[in-house]
């Protein structure tokens, strides 16, 4: 929650100082996230990969706070780190024995994946730099949970209902797929 505190303590700083503080926070988090993400996709130990994923997810939550999306940030922590990662750890535990370590990825495959990854990044980066050259994110104040909930239950009610149906379908689907019979 340090980023949040930084955001709230910002009125005491001058605008220039606040900007510097925000950018420093961003840089630290971004570097950590990228490194953790890279380690996640390269480490041989599956459990370590899950822990690196936690770091990335926490970093994403931090970015949300930096962008003033407090509710989404908290949800990110609770749902992703609290639930989904635990689910992954269960998955790893239940499939233990097949892979203690994920080894022996052939170098050609890594090369191929790396090339595709770089290609994806190159195209996206070119498009982004081209389109949003100097656009500034200018958020006056963090959005409140009330605003988000109002929006969900009025403008976005139909997607909301669709998601609820999707969750039900996924629930049933997961049970059907994974049950023993």
């Amino acid at each position: 929650m340090t980023a949040l505190a930084a955001l709230e303590g910002m009125d005491r700083l001058t605008s220039g100082e606040a900007l510097v503080a925000q950018n420093v926070a961003f840089a630290i988090m971004a570097i950590t996230m990228v490194v953790a993400a890279l380690r996640m996709v390269t480490t041989r130990n599956v459990v370590h990969a899950a822990l690196y994923l936690v770091v990335v997810l926490a970093g994403v939550a931090g970015q949300f706070l930096l962008l003033g999306a407090e509710f989404v940030g908290v949800t990110q922590v609770m749902v992703y780190i609290g639930a989904i990662v635990v689910l992954f750890l269960f998955g790893i535990m239940l499939t233990k024995g097949s892979f203690g370590e994920d080894d022996g990825v052939s170098s050609e495959k890594r090369l191929m994946a790396g090339l595709v990854g770089l290609l994806v990044f190159g195209v996206m980066a070119a498009a982004l730099v081209d389109s949003f050259e100097d656009a500034e994110v200018a958020r006056e104040a963090p959005s409140t949970t009330a605003e988000v909930s109002d929006s969900i239950f009025s403008t976005y009610i139909v997607p909301f209902e669709a998601v609820s149906v999707l969750l039900l379908a996924a629930l049933i689907g997961a049970i059907v797929v994974a049950r023993k019979d």
Binding site: M33, V34, A37, L38, M40, V41, V56, V105, K109, R110, M112, A113, G114, V116, G117, L118, V120, F121, M124
Partner: peptide, 12 residues
């Protein structure tokens, strides 16, 4: 960057 790393992970 994260997206591309994710793509790499999916493929590799």
């Amino acid at each position: 960057v994260l997206f591309s790393i994710g793509v790499y992970g999916v493929l590799a």
